[in-house]
Design a protein around this nucleic acid. Structure first.
Lengths: 212, 212
DNA sequence: GTCTATAGGGGGATAGAC
DNA sequence: GTCTATCCCCCTATAGAC
């Protein structure tokens, strides 16, 4: 779920390019390490060990640590966008997708940890992922606020619900739930909470009954 | 805002104890550094430089890096608890205090950054502040859920509002707002959003009109 | 495409002098 | 209570061999 698409690294020329597979393994390992320790204290050493490569071997594929981080973030977002393939013009589908993403997230705590840790770390302006996250939040906020605005215009929201606030709050809710959930997974069910929040916004539920 | 109270470091015996003042300066500097960089990549070096002390001088007051972190977190919570001095038996006062804290937070982004960064970092079980945060969240959740339960019993909540969900969501909302706010302070007003969320829970507003 | 070797910098913590 | 000196660890990145 990211604004611009990513450009592929480089020439996948050979007939059976092991390169692609290696890079995939690097991304997987990097995700794990950055999720566990964040960017700053996660080390290339740990990543290269996980992959079974030397440090220099790893840096052949991604020239710097920051470049590797970029690649991990963009890759995750590309995968998510492709898997869900949301119709951005349909406000109900957009809102529904937030619930779908929450549900998926409960099955991949590693990714949740990655975004939690990194988004907090990247609030500092000099962090290599700072721009990525500011742009990402701006984009997501625009997406969901737009959806709520169209729903409001169609009279589908309760009186007194401000579309922009609802968008900001939905995003905040999801982010905040993740911290509590990561700290103690038995304390709450993220899907239930998101669903309840959405149900509170409208008399007629958003959720397509065929899907849940 | 923490469950157990902290024990004071040690003997403040001398008549003009510079020790106390030094430790205060250390805590202030440590807060800044841990907020900016988190625990893992924030360095004692940077802290001791800010204070104007050598590394060893700093470690005389706090024997390890983890001990220093503990002290910073407990100190902040003690200060907040003392300043607000909430009547924990009055559910309206408890809910109101969340709004007060939000308002105060908007004037001290450093503290917000500290809790954001550290709570995310500390979701990993082996982090030195892991227990601190799990216990803290458990305690806060119990506090606010209890308040909502009493409000519900008194018929002060809208129909269909689940007290436990409302508590979990209020905390999540505050945490999530902080990330978005730190990334772009012009994007939203945390106080407004918390107030709107609370207003959505009850027909009669919680907020004491004498105070806002 | 991957390796070894190495440069060059920080990091936390301890010992012992003042 | 604070210092200097020191230990030994881990880190990112580059150069050049295979």
């Amino acid at each position: 779920m990211s604004a611009p698409a990513a450009q592929q690294p480089r020439k996948p020329r050979g007939p059976y390019a092991k390169t692609k597979a290696t890079r995939q393994r690097i991304l997987d390992a990097a995700l794990q390490v950055f999720a566990e320790s964040g960017f700053r204290s996660g080390s290339l050493r740990e990543i290269s060990e996980k992959v079974g490569l030397s440090d220099a071997g790893l840096l052949h594929h991604y020239p710097t640590k920051a470049a590797l981080l970029e690649a991990v973030l963009r890759h995750r977002d590309d995968v998510a966008l492709r898997d869900f393939n949301i119709d951005l013009e349909d406000p109900r589908a957009v809102v529904q997708s937030f619930l779908d993403i929450t549900e998926r997230n409960m099955n991949q705590p590693g990714v949740v940890e990655l975004y939690c840790t990194l988004s907090a770390e990247a609030t500092t302006p000099d962090h290599p992922a700072h721009e990525f996250f500011t742009e990402r939040y701006e984009w997501v906020r625009g997406l969901v606020v737009g959806a709520f605005e169209r729903l409001a215009a169609a009279g589908s929201l309760n009186d007194g619900v401000d579309p922009r606030s609802a968008g900001i709050q939905l995003i905040s809710l999801m982010d905040g739930l993740q911290v509590q959930w990561l700290l103690d997974r038995s304390a709450l069910d993220m899907t239930v909470e998101v669903k309840r929040y959405l149900d509170g916004l409208a008399r007629t539920p958003f959720i397509d009954p065929r899907r849940r």
